[in-house]
Computed example of a mutant assay.
Amino acid sequence: MEITNIKTPLGITTIMGDENGISVISVSDEGEISEQIPAVLQEAVSQLMAYFEGKRTTFDFKLNPKGTEFQQKVWNGLLEIPFGKTISYLELSKKLGDVKAIRAVASANGKNPLWIVVPCHRVIGTDGSLTGYAGGLWRKKWLLEHENPTTQQSLF
Rank of each mutant, 00 (worst) to 15 (best):
N64A: 11
K94E: 12
D127C: 02
N20P: 01
G77I: 04
V105M: 01
Q71H: 14
E43D: 03
R139K: 15
Q42C: 02
S28C: 02
S129K: 13
F59M: 03
L155I: 06
N76Y: 05
S46V: 06
P38N: 01
L114Q: 06
I3L: 10
E2M: 04
W115M: 04
W75Y: 11
G77T: 10
K66W: 12
K141S: 15
V123K: 10
I33N: 05
G135W: 01
S26R: 10
F70N: 05
I3V: 12
L41G: 01
V99F: 09
G128N: 01
L48D: 07
L63E: 04
G97S: 13
R139W: 06
S107P: 00
I102Y: 09
T57N: 05
P65F: 04
A39L: 04
T131W: 07
G132M: 08
T4C: 14
G125W: 00
S34C: 06
L63C: 11
A101S: 14
A101W: 08
K95Y: 07
K73Q: 14
A39F: 05
H121T: 14
A101G: 08
A50D: 14
K62A: 03
L92V: 10
G21F: 02
L63K: 03
N64W: 01
Y133F: 15
S34R: 02
G54M: 10
A134E: 03
A50M: 10
P82Y: 00
A104I: 00
G110L: 04
N64D: 11
G21L: 03
C120G: 15
E147A: 13
A134D: 07
G97R: 07
F156M: 09
E91Q: 14
F70K: 06
D60T: 07
N148R: 14
T8H: 14
T126I: 13
R122Q: 14
E145H: 13
I3G: 00
F61W: 07
V40K: 02
T86P: 13
L137W: 05
Q42K: 13
R122W: 09
G17P: 11
G135A: 15
T126P: 07
A39R: 05
S28H: 01
A101H: 08
K140S: 08
G17A: 06
S28Q: 08
G128Q: 02
L137R: 14
I33T: 08
L96M: 15
Y133R: 10
W142A: 15
N5I: 01
I3A: 04
A134M: 12
V27Y: 01
P82W: 03
F156V: 09
P82V: 00
F52M: 11
Y133T: 06
E19C: 01
F59R: 01
L114P: 05
S26P: 08
E30V: 05
T8S: 15
K55P: 00
V45H: 06
N148D: 15
V123Q: 04
W115G: 05
Q36N: 09
V27D: 06
Q47S: 09
G84T: 13
N109M: 03
V45M: 06
K66L: 14
G135D: 09
V117E: 05
D29V: 06
T13R: 00
